[in-house]
Amino acid sequence: MAEEPDGRVAIVAGAGDGIGRACAIALARSGADVVVAARRPEPLRRLAADIADLTGRRVLDVPTDLADQDACRALVDTAAKELGRVDVVVNVATYNPAGRLEDLDPAEFRRAFEINVLGVLAVSRAALPYMRAVGGGSIVQISSEAPRAKLVNLGAYAATKGAMEVASGVLAKEVGPDGVRVNVVVAGYTDNAKLAAYMADIADRRGVPVTTVRDEMTKSSALRRLTRPEDIADVVAFLASAQARAITGTITPVTSGVSIGG
C-alpha cells in the first residue's frame, strides 16, 4: 500500500454543507489538514470546529466567492501560506439556476458558467504551482448526472457541468507529466437539503406528495437507494490518496446505479 506524504493539505471549495462538508471531513479523517471555502462564513466556522473536534487535524476556514477569479487565487495562496503546501483540491461549489433555456436570464447562465467552470478552473490552476513544488497532487471535481440526463429546466446547470467535465479531462492530459492527477466524480441523487428542496418543487408542480417523488427517485437507481454525501466523500478521499496514483482523467459515477454504463 502506497504511503501518504506527511502533512498533506487539502482544499475543499464549496465546503459549507452537504457533499462539501462530507468531503472535508473524509479528507481530514484520512490524515490531511484541510482548508474549507464557501461564500457564507458561519457554516464554514461550524464545519472547521467540527473537523477539529472529530479529527484533531489543522483546519483553516476561508470565506470565498468562487465566482471571483482573484478570490479563488487568494484562497489557494492563503492555504499554502498558512499550512505550507497544497496537495489536494476538491471543487464542490456549484450554481444551479432553474428555468427553461429560452426564458433564462443570460446573467443567470453567465453566473453558472463563472462558478461551475471558471471558478473550478481558477482554484485548480492556482494550485498547480504548489502541487508541482511537492512533486504532484490530486484535483477532484464534483459533477452530476445533469449533462447526461439533459433535464428540462436545468439546461444552464447541465451545460456548465458538461463544460467543466471536458475541461477537466483536457487538464488531466496537460498536467499529468507533472504528477498532478485530475478526476471527476459524478454525484447521483444525493440525500441532502438541496435534493429535498428539488423534490418538494417537483411534488408541488405535479400535485403529488413529496414521498411519491422520493420513492420514484429511489426506485430509479439499481441499488434502490439515494446516494449519501458520505458515499461521494469516500470516493473523493480515495481519488485524492496515493492508492489512486495511476488514476487520472476519469469520470466516476457515484449514483447508486441511476445510470449504468456499457
Rank of each mutant, 00 (worst) to 15 (best):
N192A: 15
T248Q: 11
G99V: 04
S220T: 08
A15V: 02
E82C: 06
I25Q: 11
S220Y: 05
V236I: 11
V210N: 10
V152W: 06
I260P: 02
Q69F: 06
D61S: 15
T255R: 01
E114H: 09
V90H: 03
V254C: 12
D105T: 11
A74F: 01
L75Y: 14
N116K: 08
N96W: 11
P209F: 11
G249Y: 06
S144E: 04
V258Q: 14
A112L: 07
G179K: 01
D33T: 02
M131G: 04
E42Q: 12
R29L: 13
Y95K: 13
L101F: 15
P253N: 15
V208F: 11
L66I: 07
F238T: 03
A52H: 10
V170N: 09
I19Y: 00
E145N: 11
A156H: 06
G207M: 06
G257K: 05
V186A: 08
R228Q: 15
A133P: 01
L223G: 03
S256W: 00
I139Y: 00
L75I: 08
E4M: 14
V59M: 09
D50L: 15
G16D: 01
A233I: 03
Q243S: 10
V9Q: 02
E174M: 11
A222H: 06
V12H: 06
T227W: 01
A15G: 05
A172N: 01
A244N: 03
A240E: 03
T227M: 01
V36P: 00
D65A: 11
S241V: 03
A67K: 05
Y198N: 13
E165F: 07
E230L: 03
A22R: 09
A156G: 04
A233Y: 00
N192G: 15
G136D: 06
S220I: 07
A74N: 09
L226C: 13
A196D: 14
E3S: 13
L223N: 10
R205A: 15
T250V: 12
P129C: 13
A80W: 05
M199E: 14
V88A: 07
L54Q: 14
T160I: 11
V89F: 04
A13F: 06
R214K: 12
S124F: 02
A52E: 14
D61M: 03
K150H: 13
A24F: 05
D6P: 12
G257D: 07
R132N: 00
R73S: 06
I142P: 00
A37F: 07
G257F: 05
V140L: 03
G262L: 13
P209A: 14
S124A: 15
S221T: 15
V180L: 10
A127T: 02
V59E: 13
L60S: 02
L44F: 04
Y95G: 05
R181T: 06
E4F: 12
A112K: 08
L83D: 02
S144K: 04
M217P: 00
T255P: 02
A122Q: 07
R21K: 15
V123P: 03
S168R: 04
A38W: 03
R148Q: 12
V92W: 04
P209N: 12
E165T: 08
G179L: 05
A80E: 08
I232G: 09
